[in-house]
């Protein structure tokens, strides 16, 4: 009755596995330990520790960087659910710092100011798993090729406008449906066209889904938004500014968790949407200048 196997850590199975445990859940942006506790109490499956939520990054301008390690440690001490943190695109030293702090997942995120305009972090070499943003299947598979163990559609963070999240999720799901019906020779050509590793295109075609867990992000502000993204095929939701920039964060957080679980139950989504107080103010994506769009960061 004793085990006899060697122990292997940091395998693809355990990296991708944690994302599988987060499915059907909501990952909430928090900037303090107090917010992290509110998120956990509301039923968040994980929290994302950062210095400023995307709406404030937008409002304040300037360079957005990895959060202060002290703040991350405080948040880790406050909750038992997984704690994620963001590093700048291509900033492998920020990623190493976050790994040394023992974060459970790193988001190499377009929400922060990119540190490298050509290279993403070589993620396979890290012990800690990574999640990355994508707008289409090619971008998702490039990130997985670099070692991402989870992806999320980018949407447009800090706006409270779900239109970009919908655009990116629809695009990804449509491309996944499309490749399932391709002949092998068409897959070769398609991999070249979308600039994605062939083996991953083949794997996605065979599975009929993304090879790793795929969440939605960027603009989800209401329970109905959360249910919409699940109906479009998302495995779960990241909610950033939508919760702690609203009138009653605890109530709204709980409602978004319930809508993510019961996304097919419109009566329940209606029930949890009642009297939630003020949603975040929001910025319509159509009013943003191209240079104000965060989703264009990364490639």
């Amino acid at each position: 009755m004793s085990s006899n196997g060697a122990v292997s850590k940091n395998t693809e199975t355990v990296k991708r596995g944690l994302a599988q445990m987060l499915k059907g859940g909501v990952i909430m942006d928090v900037v303090t330990a107090e917010q992290a506790s509110i998120a956990e109490e509301a039923g968040a499956a994980a929290v994302m520790a950062l210095e400023r939520v995307p709406a404030d990054i937008r409002a304040d301008g300037g360079v957005a960087r990895m959060a202060d390690p002290e703040k991350i440690l405080e948040i880790q001490a406050a909750v038992t659910i997984p704690v994620m943190a963001k590093c700048r695109i291509g900033h492998f030293v920020e990623a190493e710092v976050l790994q040394s702090l023992g974060v459970d997942y790193i988001d190499e995120s377009e929400v922060l100011t990119p540190a490298d305009e050509e290279h993403h972090v070589a993620k396979s070499g890290f012990d800690v798993p990574f999640v990355c943003g994508c707008r289409n299947l090619g971008e998702a598979l490039r990130r997985i090729g670099e070692g991402a163990a989870m992806v999320r559609t980018k949407g447009e963070a800090g706006t409270g406008d779900v239109v970009e999240a919908v655009r990116h999720m629809r695009r990804v799901m449509s491309e996944l449906r499309h490749i399932q019906h391709m002949r092998p020779d068409e897959l070769y050509a398609y991999a070249k066209e979308i600039q994605a590793p062939l083996n991953l295109v083949e794997e996605a075609a065979e599975l009929g889904r993304m090879p790793v867990v795929n969440f939605a992000a960027g603009g989800i502000a209401t329970p109905a938004d959360a249910a919409l993204m699940m109906r479009l095929g998302s495995d779960g939701n990241f909610v950033g500014s939508g919760i702690f920039k609203s009138g009653d964060p605890a109530l709204r957080a709980r409602a978004i968790v319930e809508a993510t679980t019961n996304f097919e139950d419109s009566a329940l989504v209606a029930e949890v949407s009642r009297n939630l107080g003020e949603p975040m103010v929001g910025i319509a994506n159509s009013s943003l200048q191209p240079e104000e769009m965060l989703a264009g960061r990364g490639w």
Binding site: G5, A6, V7, V14, M21, Q99, G102, D104
Partner: peptide, 27 residues
């Protein structure tokens, strides 16, 4: 510990015949 301490190993499980069972431990 944390996620970086997650691991895989083989286990003997009482009542399960046919060799060790590959087990994935995540947090």
């Amino acid at each position: 510990g944390r996620q970086t301490d997650s691991f895989e190993t083989d286990l003997e499980i009482e009542g399960i015949s046919g060799g060790p069972f590959h087990a994935v431990f995540i947090r």
